[in-house]
Amino acid sequence: MDPEYFRSDMCWGTLGTVRPHSNFHPDRDVWELQTALEKKDCGTIVRILTNRNNAQRQVLVKTFEELTQKDLGSEVKRALSGEVEALMLELLMPPLHFEAYRLQMAMAGVGTDEETLLEILCTRTSSELKEIDEVYKKMFKKDLEKELRSETSGDFAKLVVALLNTLVATLNGKKCDATPWIDILTSRDPEHLQKVLDEVEFQTGLFLDEAFDKRFSGDLRLGLKVLVQCIQNPDLYLAKRINIMKAPQTQRVMVSHCEQDLLCIRAAFLKLTGKSLYSTLQRHFKGDLLTALLNICRSED
């Protein structure tokens, strides 16, 4: 791990694990990267790219092209392969592009990865989602809302795209109406929603997970449960996603949150599993991919 990380005082107030490199010299990094790419020296490529924050990586992309007349992403593709190649390419994407890419990947091919869609839609603010929507249109020349509608159906589609009205009565009847849940859960701020959800549990005598299991099914049940988890404890929900311990899911959640709140997710992971994320990664991954993930995670808890 880069010792400069621990000497940096630039970003210690944040809840991210990846911070600006305090001794950042893009020209020097570019020449070191170029040599490493020619030699297929994965260790050096991983060390540099995981020890710079995203803004610095964007400077490296630009500087690399200016000094070598080559595209850094294309050179990484030529030099590396497999999961570590995918991780390095993901680190080179600007954050909004990465989230748009994740949404597109979740809808690509046969079958839709509903939980990845939900993860992004439920853990990002409305302003972030608006920006992601704009970037998605530019990247894929498609309307994100139309894509979501075409890849999902029924009440789940309404939930993924939605806003509607009222609560407790819907869980007490035999037939449950999804409409008010979709409305309230997608149109109120988290602090207000937490009070509403506490009151619903008190009045029904059911934990919401139990209530959703009894009253809903399929993708809608998954969607409502994920949304409530993200309202009640988003760090715990993301810790559960990471705990799947399979690339690319684990690495994509880590990349997505490493500059914002991965320290909080690490703490939730420790509480959830009784083990640190740093140690758990060492039991499930190996080689250069492990080194990269440990650099993103940063330290033992």
Score class of each variant (00 low, 15 high):
1 M>S: 09
151 E>I: 07
216 F>P: 00
277 L>I: 03
278 Y>G: 00
155 D>H: 12
164 L>T: 15
59 V>T: 08
179 T>N: 13
32 E>R: 12
74 S>G: 13
165 N>G: 12
254 M>A: 02
15 L>H: 11
87 L>I: 06
175 K>S: 14
194 Q>T: 15
71 D>H: 08
104 Q>V: 10
153 S>K: 14
209 D>F: 08
23 N>V: 14
16 G>L: 07
122 C>R: 00
31 W>V: 13
36 A>H: 10
245 M>K: 01
218 G>E: 08
10 M>P: 01
276 S>T: 08
271 K>C: 04
286 K>V: 05
107 M>P: 13
128 E>G: 05
297 C>D: 00
207 F>P: 06
290 L>K: 02
46 V>D: 03
271 K>R: 09
223 G>D: 05
10 M>Y: 08
100 A>T: 03
74 S>R: 09
291 T>N: 12
180 P>C: 12
301 D>N: 08
62 K>N: 12
130 K>H: 10
38 E>P: 00
239 A>K: 08
56 Q>T: 09
280 T>M: 02
24 F>R: 02
151 E>T: 14
248 P>M: 12
122 C>V: 06
144 L>D: 13
67 L>T: 04
274 G>C: 04
170 T>M: 12
146 K>Y: 09
62 K>E: 15
24 F>P: 06
221 R>Y: 01
111 G>C: 08
208 L>G: 05
131 E>G: 06
287 G>S: 04
80 L>Y: 04
161 V>S: 04
301 D>W: 00
64 F>M: 10
91 L>P: 00
92 L>K: 02
222 L>P: 00
198 D>E: 13
216 F>H: 02
34 Q>R: 15
49 L>Q: 00
62 K>F: 08
87 L>G: 03
243 N>D: 13
190 P>F: 11
94 P>M: 05
191 E>D: 15
246 K>P: 09
214 K>P: 06
199 E>I: 07
106 A>C: 04
293 L>G: 03
178 A>L: 13
71 D>F: 11
203 Q>K: 09
105 M>P: 05
9 D>S: 15
203 Q>C: 04
192 H>W: 14
55 A>R: 05
5 Y>T: 08
287 G>P: 00
63 T>R: 15
52 R>S: 08
243 N>K: 07
298 R>E: 06
74 S>W: 06
234 P>E: 07
221 R>G: 02
300 E>L: 11
59 V>W: 04
290 L>Q: 06
183 D>R: 15
242 I>M: 00
34 Q>V: 12
47 R>A: 15
85 E>I: 01
23 N>D: 15
210 E>C: 03
115 E>L: 13
252 R>K: 12
15 L>S: 07
50 T>D: 03
1 M>K: 10
18 V>G: 09
171 L>K: 11
99 E>R: 02
137 K>P: 13
95 P>W: 10
119 E>C: 05
183 D>C: 14
121 L>F: 11
159 L>R: 10
223 G>L: 01
91 L>M: 10
169 A>M: 14
205 G>C: 11
82 G>K: 05
251 Q>E: 11
